[in-house]
């Protein structure tokens, strides 16, 4: 099956992507965007994502998978640095992101799209694209209005019960990251790791689209589906013997067919 490698956007922020056109006799109406995991899991799961893409394309879906900025084959010129420098950069980036979202919300609130009656907060609204800021809540500290405006929505990431996994963050003792402190060759600072751990289930509960969650029946605590997600999503439980988080799997390139079949079934049953 032909695949089309692409580079999206302008350098140096180009993203690498692979487009797999729909194959099979009956092409579907919608495509599937496959989002990688991150860090070592991305390397270990590459084969899985590729085979999943092949199968979905064969089932009639147009499939695209891509590498996030700064990972895989995508762009990023500067790498690394000490964990402390990474922390500073992360905080700075988080503030800028929150500010940009706040500015956008403010702008859209004052300048509603042409043809739309009244101000953004009062008039009828189109479905907002939903700008998610899962990695921080600096907008609160910076006084940026949250959830206001038309077209930009910051989902709250209040810390409510997303299961914490792994051990509590330990202070990094040296500049050389260990396996737990880095992802794909660049270190994860303390504040970024803490923020990732604090991603809230509420963000998922507010997702405007129908959501399907596939989970191992005997998932370890880090992979268990939160109750709030269970209430609003369709949950498929599969009896997979594969333990993704096991160190013993580190050197394996595995493609669990039961997981692939579950994704196929879930998508096949959809619209």
């Amino acid at each position: 099956m032909a695949v089309i490698p692409l580079r999206l956007g302008e350098p140096p922020r180009q993203l690498f992507a692979m487009l797999q056109p729909a194959g099979g006799a009956a092409p579907r109406q919608h495509g599937v965007l496959l989002c990688n995991p991150f860090g070592q899991e991305a390397i270990r799961a590459h084969r899985l994502v590729r085979v999943l893409g092949d199968r979905l394309a064969a089932a009639g879906f147009a499939v695209m998978r891509f590498d996030y900025y700064g990972t895989g084959d995508s762009g990023r010129r500067r790498y690394g640095g000490t964990p402390a420098a990474l922390d500073r950069r992360h905080r700075r980036g988080r503030r800028r992101t929150a500010l940009a979202i706040g500015h956008l919300a403010h702008h859209l609130d004052r300048h509603p799209p042409r043809g739309q009656p009244g101000g953004g907060c009062r008039g009828p609204r189109a479905a907002p694209p939903g700008a998610v800021d899962p990695l921080g809540s600096d907008h609160r500290r910076r006084g940026v209005p949250r959830g206001t405006g038309l077209g930009a929505r910051v989902l709250d990431t209040g810390r409510i019960g997303w299961p914490r996994h792994g051990t509590p963050p330990q202070p990094l003792s040296n500049a050389s990251p260990g396996p737990d402190d880095e992802a794909l060759g660049f270190p994860l600072g303390e504040s970024l790791r803490a923020d990732i751990r604090d991603i809230s289930a509420r963000s998922f509960a507010q997702c405007p689209s129908p959501m399907t969650v596939i989970s191992s029946a005997d998932a370890s605590p880090c992979c268990r589906v939160p109750t709030q997600v269970e209430r609003s999503a369709r949950v498929h439980r599969i009896a997979s013997e594969l333990e993704w988080v096991a160190i013993s799997q580190m050197r394996s390139a595995v493609v669990p067919s039961d997981a692939l079949q579950a994704v196929n079934d879930a998508l096949g049953a959809g619209p």
């Binding site: 032909a2 695949v3 089309i4 490698p5 692409l6 580079r7 180009q14 690498f16 692979m18 084959d73």
Partner: peptide, 15 residues
């Protein structure tokens, strides 16, 4: 940087 498919059948992928 250019990502491309190459080889006799266009089966190889590289950048």
């Amino acid at each position: 940087e250019t990502s491309l498919a190459f080889g006799p059948d266009g089966n190889l992928v590289g950048t």
